[in-house]
């Protein structure tokens, strides 16, 4: 947009010093490089998950594992709750980008309002995640390190699989321990990856609260710009971006 077009005219001394050839501040560039490294960490987790899944003959079925909704008892509502979580996170990304936009215009009141909405969205997402974890750990018995006992009754993990699939049913018939191992791996990866993501959301909410305090106190107004909102905004959008991939890998595929 404007910031790009303003300086795209080719000047001979782009790398000659005295200004940033990339036209970004040090802090913003370092945030991008931090996010790049964080993307590699999340990527390592997700690829490791994918590899384990590829070397498992059967894998728990998302539509069967994630079919519950708060206060709906045992009704079968696959993917509905996680869709709500996804909606909340996309929405909070929009309020964040609106805060960044208001920051460009030095509109202190709007920055504060949109940051507040972003914080509310982040907390709502974390609340949903807390419910989902509690549900999985409580009613399904899945957490880190569960489903390791070879004497576990088959029906306790059969509930996570799509038994209408002939190949899956065959594995349960011939070697149910393969399915037990998959269930164990599934829950380990699920809690590790969504936990790592949830940790990012938590720290994002904390940063947003700190920024809200600074905005209301007029710290950025005195500084003359709201670049901090932009930098934390990058982080927040990245967390949303990671969720897009987690959503696909765990709930859709």
């Amino acid at each position: 947009m404007s910031q790009a077009t303003a300086t795209t005219a080719q000047e001979p001394n782009l790398w000659g010093g005295g200004r940033s050839p990339f036209n970004v501040s040090y802090g913003k560039m370092m945030m991008w490089f931090f996010l790049l490294s964080d993307a590699l960490t999340f990527g390592a987790f997700l690829i490791s998950y994918g590899t384990t899944r590829f070397f498992s003959a059967v894998w728990p079925n998302a539509n069967t594992v994630f079919k519950s909704f708060p206060f709906m008892g045992h009704s079968n509502l696959p993917l509905l709750f996680v869709s709500l979580m996804t909606f909340i996170l996309i929405m909070s990304s929009v309020t964040m980008v609106l805060a960044v936009h208001a920051g460009h215009y030095g509109d202190k009141k709007s920055v504060a309002t949109w940051l507040l909405w972003t914080i509310i969205g982040g907390i709502a997402f974390l609340g949903c995640q807390a419910w989902e974890w509690t549900h999985l750990a409580g009613e399904c018995g899945g957490l880190w390190g569960t489903f390791t006992d070879v004497n576990t009754p088959v029906h306790e993990y059969q509930q996570f699989f799509n038994m209408n699939d002939a190949a899956v049913a065959n594995v349960f018939h011939t070697q149910p321990l393969v399915a037990l191992q998959s269930t164990h791996n599934f829950f380990n990866y699920f809690f590790t990856i969504t936990g790592f993501h949830g940790g990012h959301v938590t720290s994002g909410v904390i940063f947003n609260i700190l920024m809200l305090v600074n905005t209301v106190n007029g710290t950025y107004e005195r500084r003359g710009h709201y670049e901090m909102v932009e930098k934390i905004g990058l982080y927040w959008h990245f967390v949303d971006l990671v969720w897009v991939f987690v959503f696909t890998c765990f709930y859709l595929l």
Binding site: T7, N23, H104, E227
Partner: peptide, 15 residues
């Protein structure tokens, strides 16, 4: 920080 904004970024050019 003010120096930075003058040096680098069109983003912070004052709308």
């Amino acid at each position: 920080e003010g120096d930075q904004s003058k040096l680098y970024s069109g983003v912070m050019s004052h709308h």
